[in-house]
């Protein structure tokens, strides 16, 4: 690809009017549209998993409520707030970048990374506690048909819980990687006040990660909240 700056081409109609041609280079809206389309695939993916979940929720209503009530809502709620604030810092960082405050933007990205790590840490604490209770992927309690198995509805609940929060956690890890890369690009001045499509898309990505959690959290932690105070 050419290294010289891109000069948009001009097309001329029969009357001699000139029209600027949209090239693939420096197409802000194109980049944004592309990323939104990518996010639609994530919606479909998590949509399908929620569908599986709802399917078995219909069949095994009580098991789901029971299983849900045993999750640790305090940690889950704490994580919700952490993600909420991280979405704010991410958005403010972009705002600062657009107004030329590069230093402030970088600070905000570091803050977001920190919050993301806190989220993962809390998640790790939760998973460890569940592992110690014998509730984890591959452990006998989550293997159907064994004497120590939980009821089927709970197996599917926890199976999907680990799958979906695991996938969500994977998205967080990818997000941290993207933000580190973004910092590198900002330092190289390849993302700046004029060209910030990469920053914009990573903000979108982070909001998507938040968006998934907005539904994952109540579906797993809250549906059984009325049953007991919960917590391992």
């Amino acid at each position: 690809m050419s290294d010289h700056p891109y000069v948009p081409e001009i097309a001329t109609d029969r009357e001699g009017n000139e029209y600027e041609v949209q090239g693939w280079q420096g197409d802000f809206f194109g980049g944004k549209l592309g990323f939104w389309l990518f996010m639609l695939t994530e919606i479909m993916m998590f949509g399908a998993m929620f569908m599986v979940l709802t399917y078995y929720f219909t069949l095994h209503h009580d098991d789901f409520i029971n299983a849900s009530s045993s999750l640790n809502r305090t940690l889950g709620g704490f994580n919700t707030v952490v993600l909420l604030i991280s979405a704010l810092t991410m958005g403010l960082g972009l705002l600062k970048m657009r107004y030329g405050d590069v230093k402030g933007a970088k600070l905000m990205i570091w803050a977001t990374i920190l919050l993301a790590i806190v989220f993962l840490g809390v998640k790790a604490v939760e998973w460890t506690a569940e592992y110690n209770h014998g509730v984890f992927l591959g452990l006998p309690a989550l293997q159907g048909g064994l004497p120590e198995s939980k009821p089927f509805g709970e197996i599917i609940f926890f199976g999907m819980y680990f799958t979906m929060t695991g996938l969500h956690g994977f998205h967080i890890i990818v997000g941290i990687g993207l933000m580190l890369w973004l910092l590198k690009r900002i330092n190289a001045n390849q993302v700046n006040r004029e060209h910030y499509i990469l920053y914009f898309n990573i903000v979108l990505y982070w909001d998507l990660v938040h968006l998934i959690w907005v539904f994952v959290f109540p579906y797993y932690y809250m549906i059984g909240a009325g049953l007991s105070t919960g917590g391992h």
């Binding site: 992927l137 591959g138 989550l142 159907g144 089927f152 197996i155 599917i156 926890f158 199976g159």
Partner: peptide
Amino acid sequence: VMEKYFGIGIFDPSKGGD
């Protein structure tokens, strides 16, 4: 793949899946 490795029973009728 999750089903095959961890046997959470999403699709396996012997574990209650459909």
